[in-house]
Amino acid sequence: MPLNDDTSTARSPSDEPARGTRPDVGVDDPTDPNLLDRIVSRSPSRLGVGRAGPRPTTETLLRFREDHGIARDAVTSRVDEAVLASLDLLTIATLVESHEQFLARPDLGREISAETADYLREHCRMEPQVQVLVSDGLSSTAVEANLPDLLPALLDGLAARDLDVGTPVFVEHGRVDVMDAIGEELDADCCVILIGERPGLRTAESLSAYLVYGPERGTPTARKSVISNIHDGGLPASEAGAAIADLIAEMCEREASGLDLREGDRDFQK
């Protein structure tokens, strides 16, 4: 790329808007500048970014690193204690002993120890219709961003449908199928786990609700339902609460989940 030659694409740091509000158009002297702007603005891909010789411009590079950094922090950090405290959740952990082990051993994130099972039976109401679980999964950011709105909406929705809800539990280092083990130990009719999804570069805040009727260890994936893409840019947390409560009510009524439900999985996409 030539040095700044005062063309329309030259940028100065002073008029730089906040991240995400201005497209990164970096092509010098494009064949069709208007079309280039349209190509860049209508695609989620990083198009029309231009180059510095064979390499990206520094601005393009920094935007990429910024987005990746947010995703990495969501994976590696823990959910803020203050958020957990405000949600009044009973906290337990899986068999996972470290973040490294959590990533390398998904089997350990699906199971709890005998001591933890005893602790649950001691502190939770047994045999609820609905057992609600929250887990960091692969994004603590998703839990922090969605749970303060989602959990009250879900609990209100379940109460409004006259469903008997057990003691809500936060599971550190959990995988989706830990709901089978916990649901089995508490003898719940059905179990829902609100869990952080693997972050993309576009958002680290995506959360999913996985649900199972008649939880027991080894329940196949096909017998589970999911409502995914819960975040501000997808299904907002405030709306997701009612949607999940509806699905749970249907599961309890039909005593089924996953492919066994007539409608199958409800997958809300933006």
């Binding site: 891909s45 180059r51 064979p54 390499r55 990429f64 990746h68």
Partner: peptide, 25 residues
């Protein structure tokens, strides 16, 4: 290769179009 290494459908990162140019060089 994907645009700036960011695959917006599969949600993962790979080499970029720019990497191709650099490797040739």
């Amino acid at each position: 290769t994907v645009p700036m290494g960011d695959d917006v459908m599969l949600n993962y990162q790979s080499n970029s179009y720019h990497d191709a140019a650099a490797l040739w060089e």
